[in-house]
Simulated scan of single mutants.
Amino acid sequence: MASNTDRLSKHFTLREMTTTSSGLLNQPASPQVLDNLRSLCSQILEPVRAHYERPVIIHSGYRSPDVNKAVGGSSASQHVKGEAVDFHVSGHSVYDLAIWISNTLDYDQLILENFLPGIPTSGWVHCSFARNNRGQDLTKFKGSKMYHPGIILKPE
């Protein structure tokens, strides 16, 4: 199995894609999950880093089933498959980041998550990459459980 120092792509390591504050073991259990993480890094995170020319700050990458349960993740979460990552780019609006991804990259699901209207750096971007990408765009505002279609600045 892979070591935490292993590179998944030019700028991203397994360690940063598996870091958790849960105290639980959080290592991919299969080669397929590692392959998914490599694809996620090369198809989503590397283009973001190249465009913004700044480090990408990972909030949550891979989650073992136990970690996913501990953080209240969905039982169908793509984080468990190594297909999803939550992140931001320091000093940049998460809304602008989500719009750039939506207009530029091929992805499965893109969520502007825990965003607060009027606070451009609030929240983060959730983005997934899978074999058959849906190109689904959603926004979830902080304090709400509702997911709105599209990448939007404020609820209607």
Rank of each mutant, 00 (worst) to 15 (best):
T20E: 08
N36T: 10
G123M: 08
W124S: 09
E113I: 05
T20G: 12
L112I: 02
T104E: 00
I119G: 00
D96I: 01
N103V: 00
F115S: 02
S64N: 02
F115P: 00
N132R: 10
I151E: 04
T20Q: 13
W124N: 13
P65L: 01
N36V: 09
G72C: 11
I152S: 03
L153V: 07
L116V: 15
K145Q: 14
P117A: 08
G143V: 11
W124P: 00
T5F: 10
S128W: 10
A98Y: 05
I57Q: 07
Q43Y: 03
N103W: 00
F115L: 02
E53H: 10
L112S: 04
L45N: 04
D96E: 15
P155Y: 07
R54F: 01
L105Q: 09
R134F: 03
S122I: 12
V33F: 05
Q43G: 00
A2D: 06
G123W: 04
H51S: 02
A29F: 04
P117N: 07
T121Q: 14
I111T: 15
K145C: 03
H148E: 07
K10P: 00
N133E: 07
R134Q: 09
W124K: 14
E46I: 12
L110T: 09
I99W: 01
N68S: 14
F141Q: 03
E83H: 12
W124D: 06
I58V: 15
S74I: 01
C127W: 10
S90Q: 14
S9F: 05
I119Q: 13
D108V: 04
R15D: 08
K81Q: 13
L8T: 05
R131Q: 13
G82T: 11
D106W: 00
V80R: 13
S144A: 13
G118Y: 07
H51A: 04
R38W: 01
D96P: 00
D6K: 14
S39Q: 15
I99R: 15
F141H: 03
S21F: 08
D86G: 07
L116N: 11
L138W: 09
F129D: 01
G150F: 12
N26F: 11
A130C: 09
Y107G: 00
P117T: 07
S22Y: 09
N26M: 13
V33M: 05
P117F: 10
T121P: 01
H92S: 04
L40H: 08
S75G: 01
I44K: 05
T20S: 15
Y107D: 02
A84Q: 15
Y147W: 06
N103F: 00
A84S: 14
P120S: 11
G135T: 09
K10H: 08
P55A: 08
G91Y: 07
L153Q: 14
